[in-house]
Nucleic acid binder design. Structure first.
Lengths: 236, 236
DNA sequence: GGCTTTTGTTTCTTTGCGTATCATAATCGG
DNA sequence: CCGATTATGATACGCAAAGAAACAAAAGCC
């Protein structure tokens, strides 16, 4: 099994600079990859383009309040865990936050250690949800056979091929999500470990190779499909 | 959305009778199967023999405190979600509870609605972990079948069709509002973005495609209805 | 150090999605 | 019943995303 030692990524949304920087610092000390934003509309933009394991969202933002931001994110079918931060600690506020799609609600001032623990729990749970099904060391499908332990595969002609590290990792990821589309962001997050990417054609090149290995007609792939605007999909 | 409900089971551990019964009553009203226990050792016994989706655990128990109970459960590699209840609300207490394996920590007196919301969230998350296909991303209706995870659908003839990004988003939106009219403005808000107003026939074209996919007679649609002057409506 | 292999970048080509345009049909208001 | 309005359906087009390949840069390997 390939261990993922990629950092979990957190988006911190907080307009007050000192708190924002303090959060960033402490989360980074815990080993998280932290992005910060100080306004509502900015969140929506950045959430559309990047993958996050958790969003820490201040409710009181100058332009667009956090609840609305959360609602909007949820309306776009994004299930990223969201932790609300707020100075308001009435039950009504908490209930509203949780109802509108928040996963946790902390009141300011908060205890740092508690926040870090809750952050950790939310991230671990979510990872478990997305943690895909186990793939055997030797995976056989119509297009060939892949031996993840030996880092080699048998292509569609029966020829043997060595698999490089990244090739194996990407293959495994796609096979783990067999039948489902895996977004480019997710691929980069898991296989490469970065979050933002310049318009890179790197992933495409790997897919091209897979198609060479496993597809009889690489122009009309039966196993490695691209889903325009989203990512790639493997089907057996 | 259609959701089949088998009752989730909750174990309530609380020594004070009135609170215990109040919790039981309210949780049952929410549709949960509730078991109650009033002492520490009893928890361990019952947890060994029964499956629970959640344990609500009072920290101050007469014989064995809740933290110890939780630790013991975790030592037995049982990952059942545990929500602590406690009158103590210092940060140190909360931190300890979370550290020792608790998933949430509520202080007494608590707001009932908040508790119920948090209960629900813990249970749903855990269900997703154990049965990722419990809430499948597949929607079936008379006209065909739509798989949102794979971005494909089966049309009314049984043929397979790839779905583009916007197609999937719009379909999802319409299906979520099954039976009710969705206005053009709302569609644009959700599917296209915010201040975008392409005053065009764009949405119509997507509806046309859907009718091609899913309607036997596209002139007399049974599923994708247009509501003149307002928007569109999907019916199953 | 020089060689090979793997990984990443740059650039160009190709594709097809999403949008626009326009002609026609349906519907509505008066 | 007729003009105005709105939906439909076909078609055309621009542009962003994917394909493809060559090139560059690391990373291994004797």
């Amino acid at each position: 099994m390939i261990r993922k030692e990629t950092k979990a990524s957190i988006l911190v949304v907080e307009d007050e600079e000192s708190l924002r920087e303090a959060l960033k610092l402490n989360l980074e000390l815990e080993g998280y990859e932290v992005t910060t934003v100080d306004n509502g509309p900015g969140v929506l933009k950045v959430v559309k383009n990047e993958y996050f394991d958790l969003i820490i969202l201040d409710i009181m933002l100058p332009d667009m309040d956090g609840i609305t931001v959360c609602e909007t994110i949820r309306m776009q079918h994004n299930d990223v865990p969201i932790m609300f931060l707020s100075a308001r600690n009435t039950s009504a506020d908490k209930v509203e936050g949780l109802k509108k799609g928040g996963d946790d609600y902390l009141t300011k001032p908060f205890n740092l250690e508690e926040l870090l623990l809750r952050v950790q729990k939310l991230i671990v749970k979510n990872k478990k949800i997305h943690d895909p099904h186990a793939v055997p060391d030797v995976y056989t499908f119509e297009g060939g056979k892949i031996d993840f332990a030996a880092h080699e595969c048998v292509d569609h002609n029966g020829g043997k091929q060595e698999l490089s590290k990244k090739e194996a990792a990407l293959l495994k990821l796609l096979i783990e999500h067999e039948g489902q589309v895996v977004s480019r962001e997710h691929i980069l997050q898991i296989v490469w470990g970065y979050n933002v990417y310049p318009t890179t054609r790197t992933i495409d090149n790997f897919i091209l190779n897979f198609r060479k290995y496993f597809e009889a007609d690489s122009r009309n792939p039966k196993h490695f499909h691209s889903v325009r605007g989203i990512g790639y999909k493997f089907t057996a």
